[in-house]
């Protein structure tokens, strides 16, 4: 629950950041397009499996809020005209989506899956989303490096986004010990750790700047 709330909080902070400041400076559209793709490919089970009301509501909430973030940065005046396309340069289709798709296909085939049923395709899309989420923040980290001086709200949003997956690691350890019949999913574990590590450097400078109480900027 803490992990999910960090995730929700990071989305709220980002929406506030866009709506209140009415600009998208220092924000990577590409990262949010990747997250939208992550949610759309992971939550196809909205139509096939019901876990709980909480689970379904959150899934719909993530898809809706991320869509609205992408919409605002792409199309909504005056926000979209402040989006700095020239700084958001990570080639996310070639270096994130394509490799994750190949990796998901390989994982699926190696673990004995086929490609001939809806459930198989769904399973592969789910694996793809796990891989893609782990690196979806990369375009945003690149933009951050370019701007160096990080606005408070932008910094907070990335901090909560990183904390969310870190707390999931705690959750997996807890479930592995205390939940009878919990199956290990090593792809999920590996990607969760990778995802958290990608934030490690950012966490360090973020916490240092909070302790000093000053402005937050990244080193060159």
């Amino acid at each position: 629950l803490c992990g999910d709330m960090c995730h929700v909080f990071s989305i709220i902070v980002l929406l506030l950041r866009l709506r209140v400041a009415r600009n998208a400076q220092g924000i990577s559209l590409r990262t949010h397009e990747l997250f939208l793709l992550v949610f759309l490919t992971r939550y196809t089970d909205l139509f096939t499996t019901f876990y709980s009301l909480y689970n379904s509501v959150m899934k719909v909430l993530y898809i809706a809020s991320t869509s609205s973030i992408v919409y605002a940065i792409r199309l909504q005046e005056p926000i979209c005209s402040t989006y700095d396309r020239a700084q958001d340069t990570f080639r996310h289709w070639a270096f994130a989506v394509a490799p994750c798709a190949v990796l998901a296909l390989l994982t699926h085939l190696i673990s004995g899956g086929s490609l001939f049923s809806f459930v198989d395709i769904q399973e592969m899309l789910w694996t793809f989303s796990i891989y893609l989420e782990s690196i979806a923040i990369l375009p945003q980290l690149i933009v951050l490096q370019r701007f160096r001086e990080v606005e408070n709200l932008t910094g907070n949003y990335i901090f909560f986004m990183g904390s969310y997956r870190a707390l999931y690691i705690v959750n997996w350890i807890f479930r592995a010990y205390y939940e009878p019949g919990y199956r290990h999913h090593y792809v999920v574990y590996f990607c969760g750790v990778l995802q958290t590590l990608l934030y490690a450097d950012f966490f360090y400078y973020y916490l240092m700047s909070k302790r000093r109480g000053g402005k937050f900027s990244l080193p060159t």
């Binding site: 995730h7 899934k59 993530y62 997996w172 939940e179 019949g181 199956r183």
Partner: peptide, 10 residues
């Protein structure tokens, strides 16, 4: 308990 994995997570 029933067999479960991370698919019931977000």
């Amino acid at each position: 308990g029933k067999d479960q994995d991370a698919k019931d997570e977000l």
